[in-house]
Amino acid sequence: MSVEHSTTSNLVEIRDVYYSVGGRDIFQGLTLDVPRGKITAIMGPSGTGKTTLLRLITGQIRPSRGQVWVDGQDVSRLSRPALYALRQRIGMLFQNGALLTDLSVFENVAFPVREHTKLPEALIRHLVLTKLQAVGLRGAHGLMPHELSGGMARRVALARAMVRDPDLLIYDEPFAGLDPISMGVILRLLRNVNDALGMTSIVVSHDVDEIALVADISYILSAGKVVASGAPKALKEDQSPLVRQFMNGLPDGPVPFHYPAADYYSDLLD
């Protein structure tokens, strides 16, 4: 895999990022690239900071050291207006959906369109219903968020993230809690919108097998760094113990399954 990337071929570049919260170091020299027009998977054990990485990319938090480049701009240095201008080109699917609870499904998907454009109502309706159709929930457009199941809410949130055809689509755990049929549909959708609209996608997921079907490149994070990267197929055949452990889901190995803790026995005896 080539290490050199020019600024133009990568939409997102993370350079030597350090970040810590609550006295814990989450990232220690994280460096990774998200190539334009590709689907990039971020994998890693729970609690390694995948969601935190997405928060860095969208400028919700700032690294204590290093840079986060999105489309040639250092996110941590942007003013609020510039950051908001950049975010208009980013769509994000939250781990829990984060639908606005006082708006219906339809209005939730229409929300970013209404806030940023002055399109006629008929066009908004067309846009919203096509996106809802794509996630299989056109019939649910009149429901309120509390009337949806967790998986349905996530699919509505996906429609909302896509509705303005962003340049960068970020998915935090898009497959968690989906049934196999929805999962298949979403996987195909992910591939299709990425290719048809020339988007760049970042997908955070634990589902090693599913992600291998769609991702062009995968990164495995552990202990604040990228520990392996490459095409998903290559990673599956990788013989290093760390990658094998993660790809095969083994509890013991170089990747710690446990959150850092005091010695087990002395904890129990206390």
């Binding site: 975010r87 606005l100 609870t101």
Partner: peptide, 18 residues
């Protein structure tokens, strides 16, 4: 407060809505 707890405020910020 509930909007904060359920990430709705953050979701708005990501959608570039203050």
């Amino acid at each position: 407060g509930l909007m904060r707890a359920t990430d709705q405020l953050v979701a708005m910020e990501i959608m570039a809505v203050d």
